[in-house]
Amino acid sequence: MADSVSVKDLVNNIRLEVFHGEELLDQKQIKVSDISRPGLELTNYFKFYPRERVQLFGKTEISYAKDSMSSDDRLNTYRRMATVDTPAFVVSTGLPIPVELTQAAKENKVPILTSKLTTSRLLSNMTNYLEGQLAERESVHGELVEIYGLGVLITGDSGIGKSETALDLIKRGHRLIADDRVDVFQQDEQTLVGESPKILRHLLEIRGVGIIDVMNLFGAGSVKGHTDINLIVHLQNWDDETKFDRLGNGEEKRKFFDVEIPKITIPVRVGRNLGDIIEAAAMNFRAKNMGYDATKVFDDNLNELIKDNSTK
């Protein structure tokens, strides 16, 4: 989990324009993901002013200040808002920047950023980005591959063939998210996201070959920065004494933070093509989510057969 995000990172990732304070972007740090829309503050109520948040001005805030406040009142209010802890002022919808806001920002060294996006869209984009960056993270040993749009986390003991399986899936047209180490974080109540650490991004280690650059070898379409994790496939060495699920009705789950992810265990044995099996597992998982359950079809067919035989 990052303790803070620089305003420069926010600018680069949300594609904001810098109206004032280019030299301040590296210095200013954002420590909370919540965004403030300063409505009450414009009425001079500062008792609970969240000074540590990014302050977002939309049509409502800009119009109210212009129509209902004098120039001196606007300047005094903006000065109170521009504290040493305030990361940035952001103005949406391509609105003109009030001269009083610019003066207050310059006096107190607060950058002013702008965007042509609507206030609600910009608020959502900034919140999602900051929540992702500031969220608690867990590091998982495994491969994360996007298969037919599903994020599949492949886990298993070291040396069992996770990286080789990921390479096989990439050659089939699927996309690598992370090799060896996957950083996972909870985006919301139902969504778990995985990504690669920066040092390992787009790289894949194959024993006997070394490290390969997947994007360089297979093209930009073979990699992706992050994805939701929808399914965990655990690879386990074949053991005659271990009972593996044969019908698909013994679903396990693994919990990360507050999110439970479905998990299946696939036995590894010489001659089994894991790429084929994991592709089929991903398609079967998607079919179940769309309402088609092959296990239920089998059960229904079996019950029908028993019923037919019992009437003869």
Rank of each mutant, 00 (worst) to 15 (best):
I154A: 13
I154Y: 10
T155R: 08
S158G: 02
G161C: 08
G161T: 03
K162P: 09
T165M: 09
A166V: 02
A166S: 04
L167W: 09
D168N: 11
D168R: 03
L169W: 04
I170V: 15
I170R: 07
K171E: 15
R172T: 13
R172N: 08
G173N: 03
R175H: 11
R175M: 07
R175T: 04
I177Y: 11
D179K: 05
V182N: 07
Q186W: 03
Q186S: 06
Q187V: 15
E189V: 14
E189K: 11
Q190H: 15
Q190T: 15
L192K: 05
G194M: 09
S196I: 05
S196D: 14
R201G: 04
R201S: 06
R201W: 01
H202E: 13
H202T: 14
H202N: 15
L203F: 04
L204F: 14
R207V: 03
G208K: 05
I211D: 10
I211Y: 11
I212A: 15
D213H: 02
M215S: 05
N216T: 04
L217S: 13
L217K: 08
G219K: 00
A220W: 11
G221Y: 02
G221T: 06
G221M: 01
S222H: 12
S222C: 04
V223Y: 01
D228M: 10
I229D: 13
L231C: 04
L231A: 10
I232N: 13
V233E: 09
H234A: 06
L235I: 03
Q236P: 00
Q236I: 11
N237C: 09
W238P: 02
W238T: 01
W238L: 02
D240P: 01
T242P: 00
T242L: 11
T242F: 07
K243Q: 13
K243M: 05
F244Q: 08
F244D: 04
L247S: 06
G248H: 05
N249D: 08
G250D: 15
E251Q: 01
K253D: 05
R254M: 07
K255V: 01
K255M: 10
F257T: 14
E260V: 12
I264C: 10
I266V: 12
I266C: 00
P267N: 01
P267K: 07
P267S: 00
R269Y: 00
R269D: 07
N273D: 04
N273W: 13
N273E: 11
L274P: 00
G275T: 08
D276V: 03
I277Y: 09
E279L: 03
A280F: 02
A281V: 10
A281W: 08
M283Y: 14
N284F: 02
F285M: 02
F285L: 10
K288E: 05
K288C: 11
N289G: 12
M290K: 07
G291F: 07
D293N: 09
T295M: 06
K296F: 06
